[in-house]
């Protein structure tokens, strides 16, 4: 387990270690909602300490992919492993047993998830939002959870808002709290589902700055976004999805500037 929140930025090399084994492995992921096949066989490898940005038109399956990785969606086919651990299933001999909810919940503590509309708990203060999961899911002592929550708030620049309720904060501040809340579990990977799409344009920057800071300190991240500039600046790998499959992936300079596929070119022409 990598303790991301406590890592000294200087101690880590910038960018992913090419020799590192992938933290997240996705193979042949399939998911349908009724007649609609949203994921049609997705493969993805995310090396430790790397930032993967997933782009694609709406309805291309980006969000469903993220939700399938932490098993918020039940899979119709394919497998996901995080740090070598199969998510949602256990292999016994030549069979896969579906895990019970309690075990899936335990696995999710290793996967941070940041939602498009924050989903902070409105009846709890910022600090209570942050300590809830470490205390309830990881059984951390309250004092310890509090101390690391305050350190995380400091890190996202909201140390003075610990006692505030989420509705007293701006959208950008709320999303920064949500990022701190996900980090409080010291996850192996952080998943961002369009973290800036619900924000006013002038608030996007402060959230992206926090994510960039995490990228510099070597946090493994998968970010679904429409911010092409952010992808160019921060991503180690850009994945372009369309129609439930990965159309192409590679370094941002390659995918964004010299896309090989017509669909990628058409998408970029629209959003750039």
């Amino acid at each position: 387990m990598t303790t991301l929140a406590k890592t000294d930025p200087a101690a880590r090399p910038a960018g992913p270690d090419p020799a590192a084994a992938p933290v997240v492995r996705v193979r042949g992921l399939r998911k349908s909602f009724g007649q609609l096949e949203v994921l049609r066989g997705v493969d993805l490898d995310v090396p430790a300490g790397s930032v993967t940005v997933v782009l694609g038109p709406s309805g291309s399956g980006k969000s469903t992919l993220l939700r399938a990785i932490n098993h918020l969606e039940r899979l119709d086919g394919g497998h996901v492993s995080i740090d070598g651990e199969l998510i949602g299933y256990r292999r016994v001999g030549d069979r896969l047993h579906e895990l019970r909810e309690r075990e899936v919940l335990r696995q999710r503590t290793g996967i941070g998830f940041v939602f498009q509309n924050f989903n902070l708990f409105p009846h709890l203060t910022v600090l209570e939002n942050l300590v809830e999961a470490p205390i309830a899911a990881l059984r951390r002592p309250r004092a310890e959870a509090r101390a690391s929550a305050l350190a995380l708030l400091e890190r996202v620049g909201l140390a003075d808002k610990a006692a505030a309720y989420p509705r007293q904060l701006s959208g950008g501040q709320q999303q920064r709290v949500a990022i701190a809340r996900a980090l409080a579990l010291e996850p192996k990977v952080l998943l961002f589902d369009e973290p800036t799409s619900a924000l006013d344009p002038e608030l996007v920057g402060e959230v992206l700055d926090v994510i960039k800071d995490l990228a510099r300190t070597g946090t493994t991240m998968i970010v679904v976004t429409h911010e092409i500039g952010f992808a160019r600046e921060v991503a180690d790998t850009v994945v372009f999805m369309d129609g439930g499959v990965v159309v192409e992936q590679g370094p941002p300079a390659e995918v964004l500037d010299h896309p090989r596929h017509e669909r990628t070119r058409a998408f970029l022409a629209k959003v750039l």
Partner: peptide, 17 residues
């Protein structure tokens, strides 16, 4: 809001809690 339960589930908070 369904997002509340989803966020709690994503944080691994046990079901009764």
């Amino acid at each position: 809001d369904a997002g509340q339960r989803e966020a709690a589930a994503a944080l691994g908070i046990p079901r009764w809690r």
